[in-house]
Design a protein around this nucleic acid. Structure first.
Length: 304
DNA sequence: ACTAATGTTGTAGG
DNA sequence: GCCTACAACATTAG
């Protein structure tokens, strides 16, 4: 569920019900898979339960922000005015973070329930596949992982330089969170289509002009996806339980065998970086590498 | 029964 | 170091 646009929508919708609120309690709900003896009784906790409880309880939520695909809560305690701790939630594939009006969980996949100091407000963490993780940190989240630049903030030039200095396939790079933070399988495919770039093209083989188009496509796609509330392809809802609508605008993702909206060719699916990869074989050509013979016979001029 | 699914991480190998 | 491929994690839906 959660790539940059989905996480952004969750953060925006959850923010008003948690900012300035104090967390008054945490309920951890183990299932059959969770060990009842260990320090981390929950699969979805990557911080020992004790530490987690102590760190979160009676802390005030100062801010909630998105960092790549991570939801970052800035927490502060009354007696420690100048120390911020960070609750970081990564939703994995099927994680949900929702504001609820009851502490009762409504699915067997709810794992954590936070109580807030506002009556009638609880924050639920639910995750069917349990690939998501909640963790607590004392230091700056930026230092925790070496994530790349935010795709909405990076400049064209920096993007072009980064891309063209690499010999990996573009789609692999777009999925690599150290290259850019926040893109996932849906928006990598959609952005590549919009830019007319073949997913298997090598970074170094992408021309400057196409890198510019790709940069633009990424930013436009993400901005529009945020506006449309993200993509609800199976599971996703925002912090208030609302589904997204951007899946209606998907051009290639999961459209295998259907006609391209731009040229009518049939959308193809291939495996790349072990992920289903969708593209239009006509709109997204592999750049043919310029052979020596080709380069020699190329007509000069025209570009001044 | 089989396959694929919004993600990340670790391992093995070229 | 840079690159690829694959398995693992856990569950559901077609």
């Amino acid at each position: 569920m959660p790539e940059l646009p989905e996480v952004e929508n969750i953060v925006r919708s959850v923010r008003p019900c948690v900012i300035g609120r104090k967390i008054t309690g945490v309920e951890l709900l183990p299932n059959e898979r969770d060990s009842s003896n260990g320090q981390t009784p929950l699969l979805v906790l990557s911080t020992p339960a004790r530490t987690f409880r102590r760190g979160v309880c009676s802390a005030t939520v100062e801010d909630v922000r998105r960092y790549g695909k991570n939801i970052v809560f800035h927490l502060r305690k009354e007696n420690k005015e100048n120390i911020t701790t960070y609750l970081i939630i990564h939703l994995g594939m099927t994680g949900r973070l929702t504001c609820e009006t009851t502490p009762e969980f409504q699915t067997k996949h709810t794992h954590v329930v936070f109580s807030l100091d506002e009556p009638g407000r609880w924050l639920h963490y639910t995750d069917v596949r349990q690939f998501g993780r909640l963790s607590l940190f004392d230091c700056q989240p930026a230092q925790i992982k070496q994530l790349g630049p935010d795709p909405l903030e990076i400049s064209v030039n920096e993007f072009g330089d980064r891309l063209r200095s690499r010999r990996a396939m573009v789609k692999s790079l777009l999925l690599d969170q150290r290259f850019l933070r926040g893109l996932g399988n849906i928006y990598a495919d959609e952005s590549l289509f919009r830019a007319g770039v073949h997913p298997a093209a090598l970074g170094a083989h992408v021309t400057r002009r196409r890198a510019l188009r790709l940069h633009q496509a990424i930013q436009e796609t993400l901005a529009q996806a945020i506006e449309f509330g993200g993509s609800s392809i199976s599971n996703y809802v925002d912090g208030l339980g609302r589904a997204g609508r951007f899946q209606q605008l998907h051009q290639v993702y999961r459209r295998t065998g259907e006609p391209c909206f731009r040229c009518g060719a049939l959308i193809q699916r291939m495996l790349l970086a072990s992920r289903g990869t969708h593209f239009c074989p006509r709109c997204q050509r592999l750049p043919r590498r310029r052979s020596a013979a080709n380069a020699a016979s190329r007509k000069p001029g025209r570009s001044r």
